[in-house]
């Protein structure tokens, strides 16, 4: 997905690259980026969601020449960006409810269509709770009708706004305040949870993709691709949460990178229900390296620890690697 800049050896993966022509550079490298979420928002230090949202919305803004409207679910993103009397948003934006962002997006798109404003495009966005749980019905409806909305899920794997409770996107074994690390099977139970990108694909909508805040170019390319299409589109962005994950605020991007490199979070693209591309793992690493940076998994490594749970998580990562062919060469899994 980065083929056009492979030639440049210094900083190919960096945000910018002075050696590239401006049109090939990332949106985030540009002085003219829209900064859809302005400074002064109240997200925690190192917030992955603030970052992911700016990446995605700025890219969408560039893709449609600023003609963009956003619907936002209740959640961290909404709360930290729009406490009266200040808002960080620089585009027309509406927050209605926790579970209806997709439907509000549908409404906006319908209005724009009626008014002949097809130049103005719509995104709807929310966290994993607002997307995979409470907003799932509206989201599925939006998909099924193929409404002209790009839905962006910023997945930080739990209800962070309310103080870190389990969602259907919470990973197995993770500690949250409703899946405490106590008892014989501490943390979030194995065998539960939703893989929303796959469910989205099952709707056979035009475009489904996953991305992380660790690979800006990939994320921007996917937003741009999504905005070049019409109909229902879904982009699921992994956004580490220092608070909820018990991680250093400086490690936000690193964690996202490790999530990809372990195979825990497969980064892929699908059109009409078929996977069309995957981001290959560049330097494969064991899941332990990822888990150890997060206090929500600390109980796996204490005394006596839970090596069997680490192994189970590794098995999940390995399964992803097999299933989505995340390795470039045939490497024993």
């Amino acid at each position: 997905m980065n083929a056009s800049i492979k030639f440049y050896q210094t900083g190919t993966f960096t945000v910018g690259n002075r050696l590239l022509s401006p049109e090939q550079r990332s949106v985030q490298a540009s002085l003219e980026r829209s900064n859809a979420i302005n400074s002064g928002h109240r997200a925690c230090q190192g917030c992955g969601e603030a970052l992911g949202a700016r990446y995605a919305v700025d890219a969408a803004m560039r893709a449609v020449n600023g003609q963009l409207i956003a619907a936002n679910a209740t959640g961290c993103l909404e709360v930290f960006s729009t406490p009266y009397p200040e808002t960080s948003w620089q585009l027309p934006w509406i927050h209605s409810l926790f579970g209806n962002a997709a439907a509000v997006g549908t409404g906006i798109a319908a209005a724009l269509k009626v008014k002949g404003r097809q130049d103005v495009r719509v995104i709807a966005q929310g966290g994993d709770g607002g997307t995979t749980d409470i907003g799932f019905g509206c989201l599925s409806g939006m998909f099924e009708r193929n409404d002209d909305v790009l839905y962006l899920c910023y997945d930080n794997e739990a209800y962070m706004n309310t103080g870190v409770q389990r969602s259907s996107a919470t990973p197995h074994a993770a500690r949250t305040n409703t899946t405490m690390p106590v008892g014989p099977e501490p943390g979030a139970p194995f065998g539960q949870g939703k893989k929303l990108p796959l469910i989205a694909m099952a709707h056979e909508i035009p475009y489904v993709a996953t991305a992380t805040v660790a690979d800006l170019h990939d994320l921007e390319n996917k937003v741009e691709r999504a905005m070049s299409m019409h109909g229902a589109r879904y982009l699921h962005v992994l956004v580490p949460c220092p608070l909820g994950w018990g991680a250093d605020s400086a490690d936000t991007i690193k964690l996202a990178r490790l999530a990809r490199e372990t195979g825990i979070f497969p980064v892929l693209e699908a059109e009409r229900g078929e996977v069309t591309a995957v981001s290959k793992i560049r330097r494969r690493i064991p899941v332990e390296e990822y888990l150890r940076l997060q206090k929500r998994f600390a109980h796996l490594f204490g005394k006596p620890g839970h090596p069997e749970m680490v192994a189970a998580i590794q098995a999940e990562a390995d399964r992803n690697i097999c299933r989505f062919k995340l390795l470039d060469k045939t490497e024993a899994v």
Partner: peptide
Amino acid sequence: ESEFAAMSVAIGASAAGA
């Protein structure tokens, strides 16, 4: 797909000027 969505779509549409 539901009354909740019905009102939510109406909210979006109305806010967008329809």
